[in-house]
Nucleic acid binder design. Sequence first.
DNA 1: CCGCATCCTAAAGGATACTG
DNA 2: CAGTATCCTTTAGGATGCGG
Lengths: 131, 131
Amino acid sequence: MIVYSVCMSTESLPAADVFARGCPSRPVLQNITGRWGVLILAALVDDAHRFAELHRRVDGVSERMLSQTLRTLERDGLVHRAVLGTVPPHVEYSLTDLGRRITAPLLGLIEVVEGSIPEIVAAQRDYDRSH
Amino acid sequence: MIVYSVCMSTESLPAADVFARGCPSRPVLQNITGRWGVLILAALVDDAHRFAELHRRVDGVSERMLSQTLRTLERDGLVHRAVLGTVPPHVEYSLTDLGRRITAPLLGLIEVVEGSIPEIVAAQRDYDRSH
DNA sequence: CCGCATCCTAAAGGATACTG
DNA sequence: CAGTATCCTTTAGGATGCGG
């Protein structure tokens, strides 16, 4: 039997520690940093967007994954889903305050990665040559 | 036949655009934000660490995944691997400059997520009740 | 227009045992 | 100590088709 490290709980707070196995931060972090999470959150930074817009914007995502990821992010309280008209259906997705606080550092990450692509590609070539 | 959106290239630079399918930023981002990437990078922020230390620190990671993730991060130029003694083998992992630039926003992300756990858990409960 | 259901494949990841 | 190799399970994700 395994007793997981203390971490969690919303009332008494030993403070969430993402390094501890069983910490509720872990699955949340995975939802955010999954293959599509980062991109979808980033795509919502400037404005609310509809499903089809997001589908075009996040190039390569399938409807299934877009739908699934949006639902997870909504469940975690990062994304707000607003059903507008009735016919034809009109749904807008936007970031919540929490979503914005979480997306901010992600934009920083994207910026650094995009700006470092030449350096990264060079590192990959070096590595591959010597292994 | 599909022609991927322009993006990449190390010389002529239409600037990497992570929203474009085929952009080299995509796999790099996945290496970083994979299940263990964030945690391993964060664990290396304060200091260099040896394999076994990381294994203890990042609770729950298998040796296999630790090894594999470290190799990927080394290949991307984010982590430096230094073999020190010969017997017993002594290997130290540390962040490169690039690794530090990339890890900085990740620390921000972790901080926000850890600090928002009560809010997130509450959102999850609300969502689950109404679905 | 906005998805969900189903089916299927590929990739990630864990357990265990073993090596320089 | 610092991994590799092998095997197996679990999950992510794509394709297609349907429904409100």
